[in-house]
Design a protein around this nucleic acid. Sequence first.
DNA 1: AGACGTACCTGACCGC
DNA 2: TGCGGTCAGGTACGTC
Length: 272
Amino acid sequence: MPELPEVETVCRGIAPQIEGRSISRVKVNCKKLRIPIPKKFASILKGRKIIRVKRKAKYIVIELDSGYSLVIHLGMSGRLTIQQDYQPAKHDHIVIELDNGSLIVFNDTRKFGLATVLHETEFDDFKFFKKLGIEPLSKELNTVQLFKILEKRKKNIKSVIMDSSIIVGVGNIYASESLFSAGIHPERLASEISKKESDRLFKAIVETLKRAIEAGGSTLKDYAKANGESGYFQHQFLVYDQQDQPCSKCKRAIQKIKQNGRATYFCGKCQK
DNA sequence: AGACGTACCTGACCGC
DNA sequence: TGCGGTCAGGTACGTC
């Protein structure tokens, strides 16, 4: 599922259901997702109390009372749900039972996700955290910062805003959506984006992500039912997956191209 | 250092 | 119905 808004929504959805609960049982059905699941995984979780759920980039961090955290990344197809009466399903790789009988279920068809345990003293050294760029919804990202970043990158603007070592959380869908909102052509060189355009893009990224989080929030009630239905909550995208559909602003057909191996959607008239 | 292609894995879909 | 090819919302890594 995941770009920043979806991960944020999962965190907000599961937090009230699992914070304060203790872990009674842990079942690991899979040795390895993107990286091996540590041997000590189950023993570190078992018996611990869940203190807090938070998001770091696209990672879900579930803090325990022992100083350890359960760290999960959903990859392309991962789902993290809370279930009351559990029906085992294909690709349920990790099932964590809580003291009230609820289960935290991590299902990931394609196994591009990740699940591990990290002690608070290991966070700074975790190799996947070391290279993370700035959070787009924090004060670290502002108009000044964004322009500084774009100025020195000689590759297309879309891949720059999707690069998690630069800015975290913007994936393939919201990259196309943000560029459309900002009126910027996805094939433009980042270094050739003007200050004015960069400022529009900053606004577009923040607004796009925030709106998607709000859309997710409005479906949290359904999510809490944990019927496994998740994915992108904001199903009506302005350009993503809208090839040949009329542009919402000018009616010209939305185009689809491929950039760096990924699909990009845009309006050739509205995006310069 | 930075840009680019490739690999990881499963399943859905499309044309033959 | 089956087979091969292509595609999918992520990201680390090797190579140039």
